[in-house]
Design a binder for these strands. Structure first.
Lengths: 228, 228
DNA sequence: GGTTCCAGGATAGTATACAAAAAACAAGAT
DNA sequence: ATCTTGTTTTTTGTATACTATCCTGGAACC
């Protein structure tokens, strides 16, 4: 937080937002492992901010379920089990299926063009095997697709759950054959939406999510992310 | 907030939690209508607390989606449309269906006994047509039932959505014939869980939620809750 | 009459100060 | 030696102080 002592928003973003995003990222990537107690003064000093915005960030993380608040003991980073990952995929699957008809209904030529444009950029990443760059793009693709449904509340929940998975979806995408297949599926999705083939879209999507879940769980089983 | 100037937790609960719950309730019941800007000093004075805990409560409400944060302008109570209500029911329906097999699997004799005990109390309320008392009990019944699934993440989402509906489910229950029918369905649910009849349970539940949604939407259409 | 610019008030953003609870520690009694 | 109890330290909870920004309203100017 390199900025003058009193400057609430250097470039239009409260410090608490930065703190929130920083902490969220740190927790999701495992940089701050589960079980760790977040002592306010410690982290405030670390980030060169005061306790006030840090605390507000913690309240948001608390609502997100990323940290747990214990009365008069502050917050502790919550654990994350394999069962959690499964459950998250289950939620995402169920809710995403609900959006599909609305996506097909609301898809505009411009929207589809925008998706195609994203796919084009992704093509290159896949070719170059640049996983680092592909991962966020793939996520953006999905987000944009889902957003077309205009079902804002469902969206909010899906995106909330997605945040938990980001950390793992990178693992999932690391698998070469799966990466190729997933990319091909992304192309198909757009075509089906364009053709307004709801049935086909639903079938494809169900498989797509199921496979990425399998892949993610398999990758996780071999990784050292999980402890329990 | 009647308490000495410096007493963080009179009876083990931070002021920010009280503020959070109070505001949430006020927003959900419509006491603070949509579009209203929540000026920090104003509400802090109103509740006889300082801005700090109030702000932390606002951050939580922000994550809940009950208020909207505008840069440097604070928070505004978000609007609530009929489409929102429909979407919420859709979410709840989809997720609740996911929990049913797990509920049947994890149901213990004690758990069923506890549900039956609740039903017994509800019987009286239904008989006396005491809607005020029945409403929270009915909600508690559903919560307890869903909790049996042990699917904690799904639960968290469902309960999050449920909070939005509380305000309207009272309307729904006000309808005499529906109230009677719903109560009967509650009894059936427990029986089906006890018999471990997943299929029957699923069928009943699907209808139950669908009907309560219809009822709620119908009631809403006639009420003055909705503006848009 | 309308537009621009300045001043001042209102309000959010942040920092800091201080109280209270809990935890950690030390010393004495049993 | 262990339990108890008193004291210190750490850390959370809350209040307050201060600053930056936005908004409003009015004066000056065209």
């Amino acid at each position: 937080m390199v900025r003058g002592h009193f400057s609430p928003s250097f470039e239009s973003k409260p410090i608490r937002e930065i703190a929130y995003e920083t902490l969220k990222h740190a927790i999701i990537t495992g940089e701050i492992p589960a079980g760790v107690r977040i002592v306010e003064t410690e982290y405030a000093d670390l980030m060169h901010i005061s306790r006030t915005p840090l605390r507000e960030a913690l309240r948001k993380l608390e609502r997100d379920g990323l940290v747990e608040y214990v009365l008069r003991r502050g917050v502790v980073v919550r654990a994350f089990t394999l069962a959690d990952v499964e459950e998250i995929y289950t939620i995402r699957n169920a809710l995403e299926m609900l959006t599909l008809p609305a996506i097909v209904d609301n898809a505009t030529p411009e929207g589809i063009a925008s998706l195609r444009e994203k796919l084009l950029r992704m093509d290159q990443m896949v070719e170059k095997n640049d996983i680092e760059a592909l991962s966020p793009l793939a996520r953006a693709f999905h987000t944009e697709l889902t957003r077309m449904s205009k079902l804002n509340r469902i969206l909010r929940v899906i995106e909330g759950q997605d945040e938990y998975i980001t950390r793992f979806s990178a693992l999932s995408i690391a698998n070469e054959p799966r990466r190729q297949a997933a990319h091909k599926e992304h192309h198909e999705m757009v075509s089906l939406v364009e053709k307004k083939d709801v049935e086909g879209f639903e079938q494809l999507m169900r498989k797509h999510i199921e496979r990425s879940k399998e892949n993610c769980l398999a990758a996780l089983a071999h990784s050292q992310f999980m402890k329990a």
